[in-house]
Simulated scan of single mutants.
Amino acid sequence: MSHISKYLWPEDILLDVDVANKTQLFNDIGRHMEREHGMSHEWLIAGLSRREQLGSTGLGEGVAIPHARIEGLSQIHIAYLRLKTPIPFDAPDGKPVSDIIVILVPKQATEEHLQILAETTQIFADSKFRENLHSCQHAIEVKSMIESFAW
């Protein structure tokens, strides 16, 4: 099992999310994680925004991996959002993003955090994977695709 699928639950896979910019995206992520996991909406927005100020988490090819260390978090949480319409994300290739993989880790993050980032980058660099992912209509299909990615 990949590190990603270990922490990505179907309820944290959101398809056809309608946002216009990063601020709206981070607000939606914060509200979702607060509703589903009891996390502080404000802490999440602050953490994701702080990390983004250090440099864009846009990878290119329509993919971004916003991530943050969150005070008081006891375990890693991952969410996947597929946007209805791509948004600007200051990616190196200048392309807007539609695939968002959010990684939230405890303040005292472990080596596993870096493994998840590396794994996510590897999976989403695969154009065939992204193409197949975009054909998924349900969260469970997305989860299954990530679980079955050939390493």
Rank of each mutant, 00 (worst) to 15 (best):
R51C: 00
E119H: 00
I29V: 11
A150I: 12
I78F: 06
L117S: 08
F89Q: 03
W151D: 12
H32R: 15
L83E: 04
W43F: 13
H134E: 09
D90S: 04
Q53P: 05
E71Y: 11
D12Y: 10
E119V: 01
I78H: 07
E119L: 04
G38W: 13
A139D: 11
V17Y: 04
V63Y: 02
S2M: 08
F129R: 05
Q137N: 10
Q53S: 13
D90R: 03
G47V: 01
S144F: 13
F26Q: 00
L25K: 00
T121L: 13
A139K: 11
M1A: 06
P92A: 10
V142S: 13
E61D: 12
V63L: 02
L117E: 08
T85Q: 15
K84F: 10
G55H: 07
A139I: 05
I87E: 02
Q53G: 09
E36A: 15
G58Y: 06
F89C: 03
I100V: 15
I70Q: 04
L73A: 14
I100G: 02
V19I: 15
K143W: 11
H77W: 09
V142Q: 06
T57F: 00
S148P: 03
D99T: 07
H113A: 14
V142T: 09
P66Y: 05
P86C: 04
K143Y: 08
G62T: 00
P106D: 02
D16Q: 13
P86L: 07
E52H: 01
A46K: 07
P66M: 06
T110R: 14
D12I: 07
A79D: 04
I70H: 03
L44H: 04
L8H: 03
L117V: 06
L54V: 00
L25T: 00
H138T: 13
E119C: 02
N132Y: 09
Q53V: 06
P92H: 01
T121P: 04
G47K: 01
E61G: 14
A46G: 11
I87Y: 01
I29F: 01
L44F: 10
D93K: 03
T110S: 14
H37L: 12
I116D: 03
Q137E: 05
A46M: 09
G58K: 09
D93E: 02
M33D: 02
I103W: 05
D93F: 05
H41N: 10
G30A: 10
T23I: 09
F26H: 00
Q115E: 14
H32S: 14
A91M: 12
N132S: 14
A46I: 10
K84Y: 07
I65F: 09
P88A: 12
I103A: 05
L15M: 01
T57W: 00
N21M: 04
K143R: 14
D18F: 10
D99Y: 10
A46S: 12
G38T: 09
D28R: 15
A64W: 05
G58T: 02
P88K: 11
I101Y: 05
D126W: 08
